[in-house]
């Protein structure tokens, strides 16, 4: 079950992300990477406490140490103000309108996914890609989120089982192991 979006919106989101990051030989597509889960998790970040904004630390446990990433960091008062505004929008709340109204990600996705059209799921990937890119409000937001959801730390909900990192031969967070001098200096 998606956390913020409806099942129907989630299906459109998954298809849109797959059109942007499709599976090719050796590289899983956005669906297998859980990119839509990442986005849905960001839209519903405040449904958990502490909110799913900043992963904890100091280590993930993947290369030693206690797994701390999964325990998210408590937000400061101002961080909460900024992130609620960014995600939920200013919604007419005066403190959130420092320089005027802000349209939040929730609204951008809700409107943007609807505008992709009722037939979006049936379209060919080329056409899906064209429609997503043509939306000048949705595209910059979803495209940045695709990069984060495919290649960011898995604790945020994407990059499932680090498949994104494995595909591109990238180890991800490496502390506390680090790299030896030879690993740094040799080809």
């Amino acid at each position: 079950m998606p956390e913020y979006l409806t099942e129907a919106q989630f299906a459109v989101l998954e298809a849109a992300c797959e059109a942007l990051i499709p599976a090719v030989d050796g590289h899983p597509g956005a669906r297998a990477l859980g990119v839509a889960d990442y986005i849905d998790g960001a839209l519903g970040a405040f449904s958990v406490d502490p909110p799913r904004i900043f992963a904890g630390g100091p280590y993930s446990g993947r290369f030693g140490g206690e797994p701390g990433f999964a325990k998210f960091t408590k937000l400061s008062k101002f961080q909460e103000l900024a992130w609620r505004t960014r995600i939920e929008g200013s919604a007419g709340i005066p403190e959130r309108e420092i320089n005027g109204p802000v349209v939040g990600w929730q609204q951008i996705y809700t409107d943007g996914l609807a505008a992709l059209g009722d037939d979006f799921l049936e379209c060919e990937p080329d056409e899906q890609l064209r429609r997503v890119q043509a939306d000048t409000v949705l595209f910059p937001v979803i495209w940045a989120h695709c990069g984060e959801g495919a290649y960011g730390a898995p604790e945020y909900g994407g990059n499932r089982e680090t498949l994104g990192w494995q595909a591109i031969q990238y180890p991800g967070d490496i502390q506390p192991r680090g790299f030896t001098d030879e690993e740094v200096s040799q080809p």
Binding site: G56, P58, S60, Y151, A153, I174
Partner: peptide, 12 residues
Amino acid sequence: GEITNDEIKFLR
């Protein structure tokens, strides 16, 4: 312990 190897947190 809040400083981490995390591209989302620090760059995004």
